[in-house]
């Protein structure tokens, strides 16, 4: 057990070190493009968005939940990228010839991606706060938002890592990534609530796990515990199923890559 921890700690610190080596990339990781969605899109659609539809005091407070979950989505889907590069330059192979538990490589990646995602979510909530968005459920609500983000992120990161281990080239990886991300966002309640969507899009969005995550995060920000609690309970169940499916689906790719 002590050995397992030693491995995971060393491998996680490697990701942290890499990030800290590159001041620019660290800056852009925290001040990420997702903030533009919040700041520009949120303010841009202030007048265009119908308060009757969004059921929120203003569009930016409505959008905050969407941007939080979009951040989780992007980080999760990109979570395998570094392992892909490790695979391509032979670093992964070097790790695999050491007497480590095969799972510690994957676990360290989960820990790192989840930590960075949580930090980014906090930055987004902080910026939203500057625009007057105060989470109705307070700090405990923020903790619940982070938990939902992590639950969603685990499944996404698993898919991303499995893809990283399976694709032939990193070109393929980024094509799939680019292809997945936008429809996931548009076919969710990130920008428009389900009720305000054309019926066919609303129908598809119902099957998007992102919708479930957003619909739990949104009342935590806008309404309060009474309204949020049933959604939160529901999303925990949905996400556990989602994660189980993702991990089960990825296990084969992990096993193959880990030998």
């Amino acid at each position: 057990m002590a050995q397992y921890w030693q491995e995971i700690h060393a491998l996680t610190m490697r990701w942290v070190r890499r990030l800290s080596r590159e001041k620019f990339s660290m800056l852009f990781t925290l001040v990420q493009p997702m903030l533009f969605w919040l700041i520009f899109f949120g303010n841009l659609f202030q007048k265009a968005a119908d308060v009757q539809v969004t059921q929120a005091p203003n569009y930016i407070s409505f959008l905050t939940a969407g941007v939080v979950v979009m951040t989780v989505l992007n980080n999760g889907l990109a979570g395998g990228v570094d392992l892909l590069f490790d695979k391509e330059n032979g670093f992964l192979e070097r790790l695999m010839t050491t007497p480590i538990h095969r799972s510690s490589v994957i676990l360290s990646r989960f820990i790192f991606v989840m930590s960075i995602t949580s930090l980014q979510v906090l930055v987004i909530l902080g910026v939203a706060f500057l625009f007057g968005v105060q989470p109705a459920t307070g700090l405990l609500g923020v903790a619940a938002i982070l938990l939902i983000g992590m639950l969603f992120g685990v499944g996404l990161t698993a898919i991303s890592m499995a893809m990283a281990f399976s694709v032939k080239s990193h070109g393929d990886f980024f094509s799939v990534l680019g292809f997945l991300s936008l429809p996931m966002i548009f076919l969710s309640s990130a920008l428009v609530p389900l009720a305000g969507m054309p019926p066919w899009m609303g129908f598809l969005a119902r099957f998007n796990p992102m919708t479930w995550a957003i619909d739990a995060v949104r009342p935590l920000i806008l309404s309060g515990w009474t309204e949020a609690l049933p959604h939160v309970a529901m999303v925990v169940v949905v996400m556990i199923i989602f994660d189980a499916v993702c991990l089960y689906g990825s296990a084969k790719a992990f096993r193959r890559a880990m030998g």
Binding site: H9, L11, R14, R18, E22, D86, G90, R94, T97, T98
Partner: peptide, 26 residues
């Protein structure tokens, strides 16, 4: 094992490579 590709993490220092492996060999 000394792989064929330069299996090097360009962002880590030489010492950090060895420290990482030191931990992986417990």
């Amino acid at each position: 094992y000394v792989p064929q590709e330069r299996a090097i993490d360009r962002f880590l220092t030489g010492r950090e490579h060895l420290e990482l492996l030191g931990a992986l060999y417990h």
